[in-house]
């Protein structure tokens, strides 16, 4: 498995490639119009390969969250195209897009992650229940075992620690065996020890289950758990790094900051 990355800021877009869990071609996103126009993404083409853990980094307003939201079918592009597998998201209506998210994509958010009125086990199976699908028992068993929640599965979120809650959220994202899991600063609300716990869990999901994960983060330590880091600035991909370490990422960020 090789990680293939295209950073085409000025060059013409490469031919569409259907391998990889998801990819984008010339993705652009503009908010507002006229004087208040903001370019969140400028012509970004990127590909996330299967079974890899990718981190997206960049300062506030660099477009990293927008990129993730558009790749995941949560938001729509102003121009360009994003694909999950070989499905072009812009061709889908709301219902089809919802079903795609439900069946092929998993999400882990920074906060507001779990339904407070459902217990841990119910939260994990929620996407399957929404789809009216029977869970794959063996798979679910493996995922639940990996969360290491033991006897706390019937507890409500407010009875769980922050780390436990986020492990439930990752398990939920993986419950339907999605093609790709997106994380929006999944450790942003956690202390460093709990963060490490969650990141190790995500790393294990990639290594043991071959899960594809894409995570937005601003923390170099978090990024060091990934296989590959993309650096965004001002709506463009400005750099990348394979097998990152925390120090290397930090240096890269510093140098990016100096460029500005």
């Amino acid at each position: 498995m090789t990680t293939t990355l295209q950073t085409t800021t000025d060059a013409p877009p490469p031919p569409a490639r259907v391998e990889g869990a998801a990819h984008s071609i010339g993705a652009s996103k503009v908010y507002g119009s006229g004087d208040t126009e903001v370019h969140a993404l400028r012509d970004v083409s990127v590909q996330f390969d299967e079974g890899r853990f990718t981190a997206i980094m960049g300062p506030s307003g660099s477009g990293k969250s927008t990129l993730m939201q558009c790749m995941a079918g949560l938001d729509r592009l102003s121009a360009g195209e994003t694909f999950v597998g070989d499905v072009a998201l812009s061709t889908l209506g709301d219902k089809a897009l919802t079903e795609l998210r439900r069946d092929r994509i998993g999400f882990v958010f920074q906060a507001f992650n779990l339904i407070p009125t459902l217990n841990a086990a119910e939260n994990i199976t929620l996407p399957l229940d929404l789809a009216g699908r029977k869970p794959d028992r063996d798979w679910l068993e493996q995922v639940v075992t990996a969360t290491d929640l033991g006897d706390r599965l019937d507890h409500r979120p407010n009875e769980l620690s922050g780390g436990q809650q986020q492990r439930v959220a990752v398990a939920r994202a993986m419950a339907s065996r999605p093609d790709i899991v997106f994380g929006d600063e999944p450790t942003g609300n956690l202390d460093s020890r709990t963060s490490a716990e969650i990141l190790a869990f995500m790393r294990a999901a990639v290594d043991e289950f071959g899960q594809t994960i894409v995570m937005v983060t601003h923390d170099p330590v978090s990024a060091s758990y990934s296989d590959h880091v993309l650096f965004l600035n001002d709506g463009r991909i400005v750099d990348e790094m394979t097998n990152p370490t925390a120090d290397a990422v930090l240096d890269k960020i510093k140098s990016l900051g100096a460029d500005r």
Binding site: A72, F109, F112, I115, L126, L130
Partner: peptide
């Protein structure tokens, strides 16, 4: 809003 948004994100349809 957040809860509904999350439900929509993880696959609840408008109808649901």
């Amino acid at each position: 809003l957040h809860q509904i948004g999350m439900l929509r994100a993880i696959g609840a349809t408008k109808g649901q």
